[in-house]
Design a protein around this nucleic acid. Sequence first.
DNA 1: CTGCGTCGCATAAATATGGA
DNA 2: TCCATATTTATGCGACGCAG
Length: 522
Amino acid sequence: MHTGWSLDDLVQHCVKEIAWDGAQGSDKARLWAFARGYINARHAPGTNKDGDEGDPLDARLQDYLWRMLVKQPQITLTTAAALSQTTHKPTAPIKKTASTNNPAALACAEGEERLVADFAYRRQLIAGGNDMSAITDSTWRVLEAIGRRRERGITQVELHQTLNIGAQSVFHIIKRLSSFNLVKKVNLVFQRNSTNLCLHTNYAALNDSYKAQLIMIKQKQQAEQNKRKRKRTTDDEEDDDDDDDDEMAEQLNTFTAALLKGQTQERWQSNLVRQGVTDILATVPDRTMPIRELRQKLLAHAGHSDCIKWFRRTIRYLIHKGHLESLEMPRADGTGVEKVARLLVPFVASTGSVMSSGTGGAQMIGIGPGARVDTAMLDSGDGMAMQHAPDIQIYWCVRKAGIRGITVQELAHQLGHPGHKILQRHLDVLSEAATTNRQILRNTSMAIDADKVARIVRAVEFAGRMRRYRYFVPEAYEQFLKQEGLSPASKQAKAATSSASTTKHTVAVRCMACMCINLACV
DNA sequence: CTGCGTCGCATAAATATGGA
DNA sequence: TCCATATTTATGCGACGCAG
């Protein structure tokens, strides 16, 4: 934690970074990024913002740095054009032609100058003291690619695609490399696919996903310790259990709260929930608890439809995998039966899991027709992606649409064209009140606070004879009405009629999309 | 009859494994 | 290192039963 830095140190830092960039080397823009990273990291946190308003890396420093670097024995000055022709590698005839989509080569102009570290130095830095005879050409290429993407890691899929190596071979190579302790793997689940993020060991500790994995492992170990303690003494460790539960519950609450507010990038972590469920069950008598109670204990927003869906899915998954069994038990107050869950085998996250702790602006990622698990989501700068429940994805899309609203067609497009039926169903549910309260809502005529209960607003718009729905977040809908000079007086009617009644409250307004359409609220 | 929730089967995409 | 195949994890959707 030095608050100062020296020019020599800066130069050495850049030499290393260039070496990490591999055979393609680094261009000037990247070099300046390295230097800025170095300088900022060594400034005291408070001083670098207002203290020096100007760029700490001014033209003079840039010039100096460049001249010093060119002089370094390990560094060669070359151009992008030269790099694309020569293979520049003492080891093997690697088919550079195969990787024409090399981003580094394409990104810079033909004559762009690049600094490249020599092979021996790079090898020492990236492969450490490992015997190079054990590292074959393909292995080296993979290792180098991982090194190049050291900050955010690279997925197995990307390695397979960019290096033109079979997916299975990539798997083997990664396995080998992790046996040398050069590479760390982190499992990601994204939409319907799961993949591994590969990180160079030296940089793994900087990655949020890897940190999350370590936290999970630590939690697992603590849970095991607690269990062992519990076996020995049953009464004295209650406090520990409570603390543990509180900690877990708190973490989960943060997740749900943040998720539902849509103000964060924290991704819901299904493994965390699964583990939370079994951890709680492990501490109660008979390892049995009503599912409803379990949900309330685990989640701060247990009444939200999002939570209910997620939770139901989680329970179902755990039952399917043999961790839980579901039983019918009479209620304590004697009014019928309710479902309870009994723990059979505690769930333990095996391959680690992922959550993001990014700090950038909240944004939806990975949803779209071409969404993939690789660059699209990682390049968005917020680290990791997690699989989302469809309703949450829908909700966020509607939210993102804001005052303009969104039609089913647009929604379907944004979500990568899921099944028509399933989409409609989720929309039905979301535009109604929370599912558990439906009974109450139907039977009551009192005013319903739609802002609190309904998640999204469904409005119908007419264009000639055509009729279609448009969905809004409640706040956005209010805003829309205000903009059109209308009072949101239809709120009650809207909530009351959304389920069964046929009465319609119609308002003639201008549609934001077409500017000439009547919009009616149903 | 209708709406809703649950169950089970089919499918997809990626990883993991073992033999050549 | 490649090939064929198993496994894992998640989604899509129809069938079925229940309650109003």
